[in-house]
Design a protein around this nucleic acid. Structure first.
Length: 924
RNA sequence: GCGGAUGUGGUGAAAUUGGUAGACACGCCAGACUUAGGAUCUGGUGCCGAGAGGUGUGCGGGUUCGAGUCCCUCCAUCCGCACCA
């Protein structure tokens, strides 16, 4: 019997499903291992070959860990709320739940064909009410907590209220944007409405008027990580700044812990670095500059307090609250004009207009805190209102932007760096000694920073301070297809819905569009359409896409629990994710938010860990390899790629299914589209047409999408699994190319032949395995184990090929050897392994729970070694020598060889290096 | 500008601790077989050279008996962040 992958694969797929082979339950007798894939958004296009890359890798690893005796949790689900389903719904009127369901079914079908070992009984969908009930519940906890900076953790808001009742907000060290002070009696005198307003400044999920990224085309706000280069990440629509009342998450409270936790996880450095940049911690000092006139003070933030004597002017953001107050009447009009101009610029304009220096003098002066000198106060849009204090002390000698500003407007530039020429540009390094700076003179930058901060604090004009770039995350979206908030309003004060009434389900609406008054789609729902309704109205916004994905890894632990998001004993057993596999594009979104929620749930004692993902592997993107045909201008004639330079041609994408090894299927191309029906071809001498190619993102419009289904059909899932791994290291981006897939397929056929005779009958020997075969096997065991442990799955495939090549040369059909090999291979190619497993006389379905072979060094022992002999580091010849020889003996033997004499050229070697079992190097 | 990653044959790549550069595969070349199968088998294939040999891991330098691997300078490509004070 030939290797009939179709029959074998469908047989085992059915077997696994029927027997629930991959179902897992808590088992205290075994160590646990949690392998997680980033769950997909089920889009209408289905999976292409790039999606399963990470799933295959994690599947191999899960199967390996099972064979190693671990109880492996390996679940899958769907991030099923999101924009595309809703936009499709707006166009067609089809309910997003319906399209989502269809897409999920297609994804499931595609994944099943790959032979993944997911425990599908644990599937979660973020859009199902049973799931989002708990997303709502977590939101409620966030609403009900504030961040205590002394305890460095989230604490219930009731504790805060107690403090307010006894002491007002004096002595409260909480993460808040509230600046006013109030006493206990003032607090007690507040109306409920006023109290809630105050509390909103403390809650971790809070309602506030804030500047948000508004995307008119999508009709919704976006989080910072959803805006890329001033346009929306999805769809590329323009985004503008708008002030709106929105739910936000006080993620800033966790900035320091999010930074610190990165040191405790095993992730790629690039991802950690991206998160560090995004959090953007900078240490420095804040200092108050008093004004020449009036009692107001301007607070600035600087990372270089050592350069304070270089200050020659100040710049405020145009939106800075003091601008209006300090501007002299003489400059009022000009300042107003500048402010207006700045406000009209979108974020995008400001970014693309970095080189253009603009600003306006306010007419006011501040006093230098040390020298008492008058310094001009300007406004300029290079100073951002949202970072630091919205004001900078300008040090043109030490900061290029300040330098450019000063040069442009002819402001003074004072040099405070010893032996540094600043006539051309600012000196931003920290290597020069400080001069012209009174008490800082002669100090290095590092020393001067400390001394300056101490002095500033001593004088009471400021203090050492840490600033973060991270902003609080906007949490409401004006969309339909998302989690409803467990919130209602009474007199416009938000109230939480009681746990017993959760989930608040998505109500039916007549259209998925905003109302005429611009309210979100949920405002269309009639009171009766809500499964629960309270107060004057329910919250109309829905949660953003990252809400459901911020905690899904916890739900897999106990997916059907109706009373808790997961039972504590299950959480304790499974713990956090041991290996997380997914794309790196989530570095500043999902991966940051899920860490935030994990830390929060840890603070409240619901989970015993504060980092969700211990180790993470980020698979590279699989790019498409587009094929091109070249049409000669104004004709229907196509010229082969190698000859195209002789003509004036237009490249046209050809569907990659019509191309094999860059050769075009000419007849197929003619019938592909009507306009090519009568096409002519200028071919190579052998009559073939060679296509050009280019690496691009996979997309329908480029006809370069490769679906896994086609390849499973053609070669089988085992071949595709191994081929995707064979392509190169998982973390590397690479273009998809089916060129080498035959090689992998042939390998599996060759493996099959080891078990069968020429007639295709099973033919296995039960004799003692040969020494040679044992050596091959154990060499392979060692390599495969090492490869898996360091996630080098491409070399794993190579090592299987080497093994099968060697066993074929040895004509090995030994049962013991082949059985061990089958177990080794089963994580990579589970279907064929199961089939061979029963041919070896084992019971169906027991393969998954077999024991992974152990490497035994005994079989690898050699008595001799083929030494490479080098002269001056150049390998010249090889010689077999006993490994029992000591270095001196090796040297003597090698120097006595005729071959050596040729290279010695009669000279006496200066030195001979012998590394036993490795190399001989002769230095002449 | 800052940060991260990468650079090896015609192609995908390997070389885990400094020790035979190019494993394994694709492709290509030559041949065998034939039940014509997306077969199988044998040999070859970094580059230059008829050969002996020379040369070779982005460039240039250094350390070392020995460097793809370690150090320094530079170049190129990709990714992320960016008027962040």
């Amino acid at each position: 019997m030939e290797y009939n992958f179709k029959e074998i694969e469908s047989k085992w797929r059915a077997f696994w499903a029927e027997n629930k082979t991959y179902k897992v339950v808590e088992d205290p007798s075994k160590p646990k291992f949690y392998v997680l894939d980033m769950f997909p958004y089920p889009s209408g296009a289905g999976l292409h070959v790039g999606h399963p890359l990470g799933y295959i890798a994690s599947d191999i690893f899960s199967r390996y860990k099972k064979l190693k005796g671990f109880n492996v949790l390996h679940p899958m689900g769907y991030d099923s709320f999101g924009l595309p389903a809703e936009q499709y719904a707006i166009q067609t009127g089809q309910h997003p739940a319906v399209t989502t369901e269809q897409n999920i079914n297609r994804y499931r079908d595609q994944m099943d064909k790959m032979g993944f070992c997911y425990d599908w009984d644990r599937e979660v969908r973020t859009s199902s009410p049973e799931y989002y009930k708990w997303t709502q519940w977590i939101f409620k906890q966030l609403f009900d907590c504030y961040y205590d900076k002394d305890l460095k953790k989230a604490v219930r808001i009731s504790d805060l209220i107690k403090k307010f009742e006894t002491n007002g907000n004096a002595g409260v060290n909480a993460e808040t944007d509230l600046e006013d002070d109030f006493s206990a009696s003032e607090w007690q005198g507040f109306e409920n409405e006023q109290k809630e307003k105050v509390l909103q400044h403390f809650r971790l999920a809070y309602l506030a008027d804030s500047w948000v990224n508004w995307c008119p085309a999508l009709g919704t706000v976006l989080a910072n990580d959803e805006v890329v280069n001033g346009v929306s990440e999805r769809g590329g629509h323009p985004v503008e700044q708008k002030r709106m009342r929105q739910w936000s998450m006080r993620i800033k409270a966790y900035a320091d812990r999010l930074l610190e936790g990165l040191d405790r996880v095993d992730w790629f450095e690039s991802i950690k670095e991206q998160q560090r940049n995004w959090i953007g911690k900078s240490k420095g000092a804040s200092a108050f500059f008093s004004l020449e006139k009036g009692d107001d003070k301007i607070e600035v933030f600087t990372t270089r307090p050592d350069t304070i004597y270089g200050v020659t002017f100040m710049v405020l953001a145009p939106e800075h609250p003091l601008v209006e107050k300090i501007t002299t009447s003489e400059f009022k009009d000009k300042v107003e004009e500048y402010k207006k101009m700045a406000s009209l610029k979108t974020e995008r304009d400001r970014q693309s207009d970095v080189k253009n220096i603009t600003g306006q003098f306010t007419g006011a002066y501040a006093l230098h805190p040390f020298t008492g000198d008058k310094v001009q106060i300007w406004i300029g849009d290079y100073v951002l209102a949202s970072y630091g204090t919205g004001a900078v002390m300008a040090v043109p000698c030490g900061d290029q932007r300040d330098f450019d500003f000063a040069t442009h407007f002819g402001l003074e530039i004072k040099n405070i760096f010893q032996d540094i020429d600043i006539s051309e540009r600012a000196y931003a390094e920290k290597d020069a000694a400080i001069v012209n700076s009174d008490f800082l003179n002669g100090l290095s930058a590092k020393e001067a920073i400390e001394v300056a901060v101490a002095k500033i604090e001593q004088m009471g004009i400021g203090k050492g301070k840490v600033n973060f770039r991270l902003r609080d995350a906007v949490f409401s979206r004006q969309r339909y297809w998302g989690e409803p908030f467990p919130v209602c309003y009474k007199n416009e004060i938000p109230y939480l819905i009681d746990d017993k009434n959760l989930p608040v389900e998505l109500p039916e609406v007549d259209k998925f569009l905003p109302t005429e008054d611009g309210e979100p789609p949920l405002a269309r729902a009639h009171k009766d359409a809500w499964n629960y309704f309270e107060g004057d109205r329910m919250e109309y916004n829905t949660m953003p896409g990252w809400a459901g994905s911020s905690w899904y890894f916890l739900r897999y632990l106990d997916p059907k629990n109706e009373n808790e998001f997961a039972a504590r004993d299950k959480i304790d057993y499974w713990g956090n994710v041991d290996l997380y596999v997914g794309g790196s594009e989530h570095a500043t979104g999902h991966l940051l938010y899920s860490r935030f929620w994990t830390k929060f749930l840890f603070d409240l004692g619901y989970i015993p860990f504060d980092e969700p993902f211990k180790k993470m592997i980020n698979q590279g993107m699989i790019l498409g390899r587009s094929s091109f045909v070249y049409r000669i201008k104004d004709s229907n004639k196509f010229v082969s790629s190698t000859l195209k330079d002789q003509y004036d041609v237009t490249p046209i994408h050809a569907d990659i299914s019509l191309v094999e090894n860059d050769k075009l299927d000419i007849e197929g191309f003619k019938s592909w589209r009507p306009e090519f029906k009568n096409a002519d071809f200028i071919t190579e001498a052998d009559g073939s047409y060679v296509c050009g190619h280019e690496v691009e993102k996979m997309s329908k419009s480029k006809f370069n999408v490769q679906t896994p289904d086609e390849l499973v059909e053609k070669f089988g899932a085992d071949t595709l699994r191994m081929y995707e791994m064979f392509l190169g290291p998982v973390e590397q981006s690479k273009p998809w190319d089916t060129k080498g897939i035959n090689g992998v397929h042939n390998f599996l056929r060759k493996l099959w032949r080891l078990f069968h005779d020429q007639n295709g009958d099973v033919c296995l020997s039960s004799d003692q395995p040969s020494k040679e075969a044992l050596k091959t096997l154990h060499k392979t065991i060692k390599k495969i184990t090492d490869d898996l442990d360091r996630f080098s799955l491409n070399t794993g495939v190579s090592n299987f090929m080497i093994c099968v090549n060697e066993l074929t040369d040895q004509k090995c059909n030994n049962k013991t050897i082949l059985e061990q090999l089958t177990i080794l291979l089963s994580p990579y190619a589970p279907h064929i392994s199961e089939e061979l497993w029963i041919k070896l006389g084992n019971e169906a379905g027991t393969m998954t729970f077999a024991k992974f072979p152990e490497f035994n060094e005994e079989y690898m022992k050699e008595s001799s070694f083929e030494y490479p002999v080098s002269f001056n580091g150049k390998m010249r010849f090889k010689v077999y020598l006993s490994l029992e020889l000591n270095p001196k003996q090796v040297e003597e033997h090698v120097l006595g060889l005729e071959e050596a004499g040729k290279w010695l050229e009669g000279k006496t070697p200066k030195k001979v290096i012998v590394v036993p079992g490795k190399i001989v190097n002769i230095v002449l």
